[in-house]
């Protein structure tokens, strides 16, 4: 209740130690959601270079010298971008796995296991992120 008496230390985030699985799942889901919507806007902005590129000379495009290809290549050559991409994958995978968990909860399936399925989502996310590292870092120029 917004008008309620402020009891300082008792308020929500100060209690993070006491959060249970379902609460963490909610927080992570929300956080990854924010990241993904932010990325969606950025992603479209970057892809928009294709608009300029489309007007370029066909030979430029054939030689991969168009703005779009150059932008993507420049970005992909950066290690930090590659690392961020692994992070993005982890974020997306968690959001997907926990999303599946939430869909099951909505269908009333496995509610007793809701904490375990959250932990499973976390572990699986970690495994997939680590496993993707070789692919994601392939061909990066240092």
């Amino acid at each position: 209740m917004s008008q309620s008496y402020n009891r300082g230390r008792i308020e929500d985030f100060g209690r993070w130690r006491e959060f249970s699985a379902g609460m963490w799942a909610w927080i992570f889901h929300k956080f990854t959601g924010w990241v993904l919507i932010g990325y969606l806007f950025t992603h479209i902005a970057v892809l928009s270079t294709a608009l300029t590129a489309a007007n370029a000379d066909p030979s430029t495009i054939a030689a991969h010298n168009d703005v779009y290809t150059q932008t993507i290549r420049a970005l992909e050559s950066l290690l930090v971008v590659r690392i961020l991409e692994v992070g993005l994958l982890a974020v997306a995978v968690f959001h997907i796995l926990n999303g599946i968990r939430l869909l099951l909860v909505d269908l009333g399936i496995g509610l007793e296991a809701q904490d375990r399925s959250f932990y499973a989502s976390l572990v699986l996310t970690g495994v997939i992120a680590v496993a993707s590292v070789p692919t994601f870092l392939a061909g990066v120029t240092f």
């Binding site: 993507i72 994958l89 692919t135 392939a138 990066v140």
Partner: peptide, 18 residues
């Protein structure tokens, strides 16, 4: 994700392919 990171690697993206 699968198509653009595993089948086609990110650094190989070109306007033409897209």
């Amino acid at each position: 994700f699968f198509l653009l990171h595993f089948v086609n690697h990110a650094n190989e993206v070109t306007f033409q392919m897209s």
